[in-house]
């Protein structure tokens, strides 16, 4: 694997919440008998390797004003998937866009997470994406209840 046990300890801290102190890496550094600098170097290396995808604050989008969110899945022919996926990636209201392997009875392969402030805005964004991509067949999978939402704990 591309990381060692010390990296795993660092990831364990970074998957949670960084201490809100002047030297947030100090405690971890001390427990691993490393310097703050060594911890920071390892974090940079984990970023370079792409193991840490993003670094910084994670906001709750509901609190950020985006209360109307929907997973919208689109039907697309295999030869057009990449082109449409790239177009969707350029839409700022879309936070996530994936191509997925789906069973035959669920024929929508391009998955997007769309964030809007109200129902009207959501409809407008979907219409815009449909225009941009030419895709007409899609399923709007609005969430009506949240049973669970947590950050992944790897280690």
């Amino acid at each position: 694997m591309n990381y060692d046990e010390i990296d795993a300890k660092i990831i364990q801290m970074l998957q949670g919440d960084l201490p809100l102190t002047s030297r947030p890496f100090a405690q971890l550094a001390q427990s691993l008998e490393l310097s703050d600098f060594e911890i920071l170097d390892r974090i940079r290396l984990l970023q370079d390797k792409g193991i840490i995808r993003r670094w910084g604050a994670v906001l709750r989008h509901q609190q950020a004003g985006y209360r109307f969110n929907a997973m919208v899945a689109w039907q697309v022919d295999a030869d057009k998937a990449d082109k449409c996926g790239e177009i969707m990636a350029g839409v700022k209201e879309i936070s996530h866009c994936y191509l997925r392997e789906v069973p035959a009875d669920f024929n929508y392969v391009l998955f997007t997470m769309i964030h809007a402030r109200d129902e009207q805005e959501l409809a407008a964004i979907i219409a815009k994406v449909s225009d941009l991509t030419g895709l007409q067949d899609y399923a709007v999978l609005k969430s009506t209840r949240e049973f669970k939402k947590v950050s992944m704990q790897y280690f």
């Binding site: 919440d17 960084l18 193991i51 994670v58």
Partner: peptide, 13 residues
């Protein structure tokens, strides 16, 4: 603010 930290690439882990 939910938290301050890292978002990992699960497949690279």
């Amino acid at each position: 603010i939910r938290r301050i930290g890292g978002i990992m690439n699960s497949s690279k882990l």
